[in-house]
């Protein structure tokens, strides 16, 4: 599904807005989301906000003075499990797999802060293939492309952190994958 604002990128944030009892569904990409709510991003996910506070709910308490009716974040609800942003920040836990698509992009910085990264590089999961699987080579190409994207993001991060040893390894791996294609 394409982002309803830019109509270009894939929508990664899906939320249900409830305003004065009127329900509307929205699908936007994370880039538009950050443009849409720059003030919230700045104040709520500021660099000096330690994640521990977020987890214990102090984070939510800090927002208590925000006017909920006008706060766009307060209206974000996971369409699958019904978790809303307020509850999510209070309990610090995800309600279902879909929550990661809904809330994940909004807390990317926090994820990076606790884990030092926001991209999984470990064991990959491939669901058991069905008997009539699609053309295998096609699938491999997609995987390689996706891996290159992930590695590039990791490379950028490594350079930012001046971790040149890792950066060199990542660069070589990207080159290998590209040559493989």
């Amino acid at each position: 599904m394409l982002c309803e604002r830019c109509n270009e990128r894939e929508a990664t944030i899906h939320y249900t807005e409830l305003v004065n009892g009127v329900r509307s569904e929205h699908h936007i990409c994370s880039e538009c989301a950050s443009k849409l709510m720059p003030a919230e991003y700045g104040s709520m996910f500021g660099a000096d906000m330690p994640f521990a506070k977020f987890l214990t709910g102090l984070f939510a308490a800090g927002r208590a003075d925000a006017d909920t009716a006008d706060d766009p974040m307060a209206h974000i609800v996971c369409p699958k499990c019904g978790m809303n942003f307020e509850e999510f920040t209070r309990v610090g836990k995800f309600g279902c797999a879909e929550c990661y698509n809904v809330f994940g992009p909004l807390i990317d910085d926090n994820i990076r802060r606790i884990h030092g990264s926001n991209i999984h590089t470990g064991k990959k999961y491939a669901e058991a293939p069905l008997a009539d699987t699609a053309d295998e080579t096609g699938e491999e190409e997609i995987n390689a492309e996706e891996e290159i994207d992930l590695l590039q993001a990791k490379l950028k991060e490594a350079v930012e952190l001046e971790n040149y040893e890792d950066a060199a390894m990542l660069r070589d791996r990207i080159r290998e994958l590209r040559n493989g294609n």
């Binding site: 987890l55 610090g92 836990k93 995800f94 797999a97 990661y100 698509n101 994940g104 807390i107 926090n110 994820i111 606790i114 926001n118 991209i119 999984h120 470990g122 064991k123 999961y125 996706e146 992930l150």
Partner: peptide, 11 residues
């Protein structure tokens, strides 16, 4: 999740 890996209740 392609980006986040194995999804868990706790971040």
């Amino acid at each position: 999740h392609e980006k986040y890996g194995y999804l868990t209740t706790c971040l």
